[in-house]
Simulated assay, not measured.
Amino acid sequence: MPLKASQTKENAKQTGYVDLGLLCIVLILVGFGLVMLYSTSAYNGLIKFQDAAYYLKKQLFATILGVGVMMVVANIDYHFWERFAVLAYIVSLILSGLVLVVGSEINGSKRWLALGPLSFQPSEYAKVAVILFLAFLIVRNVKKMGKIKTMFLIMLSVLPIVGLVGTNNLSTAIIILGIAVILIFVASPKYMQFIGMGALGVGFIAIFLSLESYRLERLAIWRNPEAYEKGYQTLQGLYAIGSGGVFGRGLGESMQKLGFVPEAQNDMIFSIICEELGLVGAVLVILLFLLLIWRLMVIAGNATDLFGALIVTGIMGHMAIQVILNIAVVTNTIPNTGITLPFISYGGTSVLFLLAEMGLALSISSQVKEVSPPKA
């Protein structure tokens, strides 16, 4: 359904609709994620912290906080955030810059800012900020979106955050860039010019890959993981997927999570899902994400204005890109980029901002109008 700057006010009836389908899917994913997280992380928690529920407790705290944030955001008119869109983007630039200077390094990656006993990953916040910022920019330039200059300038405006985040987190930078491309694409009346923009995007990513030798090494590991020590995680993940068969070993019965797949509760959790629940479980998880994306698509197509439609489209793009990349990495379809599976992988900051995004989508769905056909 084409995105419009506004819906016709005449013949429109406010329904007060809330997308319960979306809410149920999100809660199912969150609940399933907590179950799988405990199953996957109990061994690591016991070995490292003498507490099998260590990771579950931290994730449960972030999830409860996230659900609270989701409900608060869902009950706030989404137009409220429009006035803070530019500020939110500026804050994301500042926080991402601070990571480079005073960021905490965990597992060899400097992606966190320490907040007392807690740690915060600004790149997760940046995804939400970019969605709001781009929706704001596009709405104000909607009549000029057919011009290549306008599209280029809007894309150029997000490159600073892509560059800052991409310095230590290429996978998230790719997601942010993908969100930008999707939003500009759906708002543009012309599509052929995306060929040139696509070429620029490929060139931009190629430059990022060549700046650090470890990124080029990942390409070599992807092509032949058996020949590299760092290919160990990929191989163990594939062993887990293969050993699960059709119905899996059973919940909690994975062997690969017992130290064979490093940090299995993070990026590689999908491989443990495949091992414990088999092909059937993996397909059901993918279907849940497809339903989530479908509900977001329905909300975007029925939003009352362009700003709301673009926000939900950005959230939908974020979900789709991240799920596809995670599963592609776990199955070694693409090089390992260190990307989490939404709502399921361990990560407090991630689940908090994912639920905040769902709150935005629910807020927009609550203002959907039922437009009756005009009278003859």
Rank of each mutant, 00 (worst) to 15 (best):
M145N: 04
A85K: 03
N169V: 09
F343Q: 04
S157F: 05
Y239V: 14
P2W: 00
S372H: 14
M36D: 07
P374S: 13
A356F: 05
G178R: 03
A62H: 02
L306N: 08
V128S: 12
V329D: 03
F120W: 00
P342L: 05
E263H: 12
V69Y: 00
L287C: 11
I176G: 06
L177H: 04
T234Y: 01
A376F: 15
A42G: 15
N266Y: 00
L132I: 05
E263W: 05
K13A: 11
P342C: 00
T40F: 11
Q256G: 09
R215H: 03
I324F: 15
Q367F: 08
L23T: 13
T333D: 08
L87V: 15
I221W: 04
G146N: 06
I321W: 01
V69L: 10
D267A: 07
G146A: 07
Q121D: 05
A264L: 08
S254V: 07
L177W: 03
P160L: 13
A114V: 15
I179V: 10
L20T: 12
L22T: 06
L23M: 15
V67L: 06
I339N: 00
L65H: 05
W294I: 15
L164E: 08
A12C: 15
A220Y: 07
A356I: 01
A12F: 15
